Amino acid sequence: MATKNKKTKLKSLSAGRPPTVKTKRSISSKATRTLIRTHHTLEKQRTKALADGDNVTAEVLKKRIEAQGGLENYQRASLIGQSNDRGGDSSRILMDWLAPLLPALKEQITNGQPTRMLEIGALSVTNACSKSHLFEIERIDLNSQAEGITEQDFMERPLPLDEKEQFDIISLSLVLNYVPDPVGKGEMLLRILKFLKPKKYPEGLAEYLPSVFLVLPAPCVTNSRYMDEKKMEAIMEALGFLLVKKKLSNKLVYYLWRLQAPTTKRSLGFKKEELRSGKTRNNFAIVLR
């Protein structure tokens, strides 16, 4: 029983997440960056302490996370960071990429078959995708910040029973990097395969759908000990994805991956292996077993 429960917690996005507390909404740009950076650091340290069985250190780190506002304050900082005056809202990049599809997307609506989108880690109901009115959007997040966002852990979401419960696009913006451990990141990518529609799309859509819009902090692939662009592409290709679009900025890397066929080449295996050394590297990694 104990082994089973431990496995379930590892798969959950909420594993290791602390309780949240109410905080003030006003926060400066500098404070926003500091809060997000500190929150990520403390979460990683706490996850490591739990993995090492150091419950005392884990509890101390939990208190520190709670003291700075917990998950809710982190989400508010992320939401402010995505506001227009801070140059945020990653979905604007997605809408730019989908511009050639606009006639086909509108036709889907006319035919009564609107393009379905699942937004994991949704923070707002007024982003570019929502304002376009081109999609039937379902939004979920661990800690809902607005009406229209269902409070749900994707790793515990019931699997689709049929194509009607699947999606044409899944948005995974700044979510995968928050999953506490490399194995959990791999499990999330594997689970996404079950939520994408395995169907033939009409001309004009087939080059882009079904797809995953994946956004990560740029250092996850540019400055990680265990991940680089080549390995990221190899992992996604092993899952059956083809890279359609990519944009790298100073802070973020944006991808649009189209699912060709949900094939998991597990015989290849993707372990946590050092690719680059150096004290300034981060530990972002994806393990696909």
Rank of each mutant, 00 (worst) to 15 (best):
N223E: 11
P180W: 06
P198E: 14
K194Y: 02
L243C: 13
R225K: 15
N177Y: 08
S224D: 10
K230L: 13
K231H: 11
L214V: 04
E237S: 13
L172N: 12
L239C: 01
S211T: 09
F195D: 07
A238T: 15
I192E: 04
S171Q: 15
V215R: 08
L214C: 12
L174T: 05
F195L: 04
L190Y: 00
L172V: 15
C220S: 15
L216R: 11
A206G: 04
K164M: 02
M232S: 09
F241N: 03
G186K: 05
E237V: 01
D228L: 12
I169D: 12
V221G: 09
I192G: 07
D228K: 13
V175L: 09
F167K: 05
L189C: 11
F241P: 08
L193Q: 02
K231G: 11
A234W: 01
L189F: 11
P217D: 07
D162I: 12
S211D: 00
A206L: 08
M188P: 10
I235T: 10
L214S: 08
Y178C: 09
L239P: 11
M227H: 10
D168H: 03
L193I: 00
G186L: 02
I192Q: 13
F213R: 04
D168V: 02
V179D: 06
G240Y: 07
L174Q: 14
D181E: 13
Y178N: 08
S211F: 02
E203W: 01
E165K: 09
P198G: 09
L174I: 10
Y178V: 13
G204F: 08
I170V: 15
L196T: 02
L193K: 12
F241S: 05
F195W: 15
L193G: 12
K200E: 14
G240E: 01
A218H: 06
K200Y: 02
E229S: 13
L214H: 12
K185N: 12
P219F: 13
P210S: 12
M227R: 04
N177K: 08
L243F: 02
L214R: 00
V183Y: 07
R225D: 08
L190H: 03
L216M: 14
P202H: 09
P202Q: 03
L214E: 04
K200N: 15
L243S: 09
L176Y: 05
